[in-house]
Design a protein around this nucleic acid. Structure first.
Length: 498
RNA sequence: CGCGGGGUAGGGUAACGGUAACCCGUCAGGCUCAUAACCUGAAAAUUGCCGGUUCGAUUCCGGCCCCCGCAACCA
């Protein structure tokens, strides 16, 4: 059922710009955009946020390896992420007044100011403290050693040498203070983390007892971060800065009307994130909000990774990566959106190969919706058959639409697609079973009437399908809707077989 | 014994205490409105391995094996 006019705020995780945008991020934008468009279709005002995470050690290293200043490096690459938005059908310049898109860079002056203000607020509330932090240093290597590099607590290259302990000071966040409050938040908000397995995981993690974590780095070692207020020797740890983007994007702390409208009144943001940063989004960030005296997010939707064939990790060295721009260039935006929506699991790891992509494209787009559109509209346009089309607002009285809406509400985009394609398949079956193409050529008036009735029904159903397709494949949905309205067959196939 | 998730026909996925479903592929029919598309049917799975609970387990419990993520390196 359409809900009454209200606001909806959704965001992706900001991708880290140490490499070109990859297909995993494309999938995440598409998912968030589908949910956003679905809410828009229901009449909500929508704010869609995404952007780029531009600070931290990896960026610093990457820039240095290219002999660039970090700022010059990020200035050079962030535009590719903006381009990706347009390529996957989530462009920044939407004509729709009720659908705002925002692209935030964590190097934007407003965001930098917001992160510092956030720090000061959390500090003022007593949740930040400075602590001695010990680092293991191998004299043989003349390098710092991380726990994961050590073997039996020793440097594998110099196992006879004792590791030296170096002390440095970092700021820490009192994460441990929020155990009970986080558990209370989880208990009070069923469905706060989707899917449920991830919710259980984070609950168990917090029950074991969260530990304070470091939120700054020595500027002398890693200067590429937002300066810690009143301490020129330290910069913020990149996560502390980046997470604040969800509120700085809507105006916190200086444009509080925006924050009020999109965060307080909506009940917070719906955040998409990968399974690798469940903790940051569902626990650390929530604790940070509490520490700043702000309300929590509305929901965290956790998705899986895109893998190569056989579930192996995608990597340049294996040569199994997929460039989202290439896919769009060759097959079109809607085809990529279709694959992300129906062929990828909304929550688990899923494979993406060109072969699979082509199979899915032919089966469901060319032979499925594309062919069905042609065969129905050929008959209705030739014989001048049509019927009343449902208002988009009342589309949810349709059975398929109701099931679809239920799936969307649970962020189960694939399941929503399944309902639509089950309908498409059923319609193909109806044509075969009733054979209206034969009835219309009959001598008997009753046959002709029956043929017309069947087609009038299919015509109306095609409209319903085209409306349900709007969030998933906006261009295709529009194309079919306009063909249905003018009752004309597509001049060229909607999806050419490949 | 760190924590969590996953392991289902050739490939990819779904379901979930009671005849294991879907897509691609394969094989055999049918139809001709449509993009050589569409429809029907068939073959194909002892649901990772071992044990337990149960009238009955893919589904619950225990152990083991393998894969993925996390475990304040980095994000």
């Amino acid at each position: 059922m359409p809900e009454s006019q209200k606001r909806f705020y959704i965001t992706t995780t900001l991708p880290y710009v140490n490499a070109e945008p990859h297909v995993g991020f494309a999938a995440e934008i598409i998912r968030a955009d589908i949910i956003a468009r679905w809410r828009r279709l229901n009449g909500d005002q929508v704010f869609f946020n995404t952007g780029t995470d531009e600070h931290g050690a990896k960026i610093h290293q990457k820039a240095r390896s290219m002999s660039l200043e970090p700022q010059a490096y990020v200035d050079g690459i962030y535009g590719k992420f903006v381009d990706l938005l347009a390529a996957v059908g989530a462009p920044l310049d939407m004509a729709d007044e009720g659908f705002k898109r925002n692209f935030i860079r964590t190097t934007d002056p407003h965001h930098v100011m917001a992160a510092q203000e956030f720090w000061k607020t959390v500090d003022k509330n007593g949740y930040i403290y400075k602590k001695d932090y010990s680092i293991k240093y191998c004299i043989g290597c003349e390098l710092e050693k991380t726990e994961s590099e050590l073997v039996n607590g020793r440097c594998p290259l110099h196992p006879l040498q004792e590791l030296e302990i170096i002390h440095e000071e970092n700021y820490f966040f009192r994460f441990s203070s929020f155990k009970e409050k986080l558990l209370a938040l989880y208990a009070a908000a069923p469905g706060f983390v989707v899917p449920n397995a991830r919710f259980n995981e984070i609950k168990a993690f917090i029950e074991r007892g969260p530990e304070d974590f470091s939120i700054s780095r020595l500027a002398s070692k890693m200067p590429w971060g937002i300066p810690v207020p009143n301490d020129p020797e330290q910069v913020m740890y990149v996560w502390f800065d980046a997470l604040v983007d969800y509120i700085s994007a809507i105006g916190w702390p200086d444009r509080l009307d925006g924050f009020q409208a999109w965060w307080v009144e909506t009940g917070g943001v719906v955040q998409y994130c990968g399974k690798d940063n469940l903790r940051q989004q569902a626990a650390m960030w929530q604790a940070m909000l509490m520490a700043a005296g702000l309300p929590p997010s509305k929901a965290i939707v956790v998705d899986g990774f895109i893998t190569g064939d056989g579930g192996v990790k995608m990597s340049k060295s294996l040569g199994n990566t997929i460039d989202p721009f290439d896919i769009v260039k060759t097959y079109g935006t809607d085809a990529l959106r279709y694959y992300a929506a129906r062929e990828l699991s909304p929550f688990e790891d899923s494979p993406f190969t060109v072969e699979r992509f082509k199979e899915a494209y032919n089966a469901s787009l060319a032979n499925g919706i594309g062919n069905l559109t042609s065969r129905i509209l050929k008959l209705t346009s030739t014989y001048g058959i049509s019927s009343a089309l449902r208002d988009k607002e009342s589309i949810y009285s349709d059975e398929t639409a109701r099931a679809y809406a239920e799936s969307m509400a649970a962020y189960d985009i694939r399941s929503a697609c399944e309902h639509v394609w089950a309908r498409i398949s059923a319609m193909d079956g109806e044509i075969q079973a009733a054979q209206p193409f034969k009835l219309l050529k009959s001598e008997a008036a009753s046959d002709i009437e029956r043929g017309k009735a069947v087609l009038a029904k299919l015509y109306a159903e095609l409209w319903v399908v085209a409306v349900l397709l709007e969030p998933i494949m906006p261009h295709t949905a529009e194309a079919i809707q306009s063909l249905v309205k003018s009752n004309s067959m597509p001049e060229a196939p909607l999806f050419m077989r490949i």
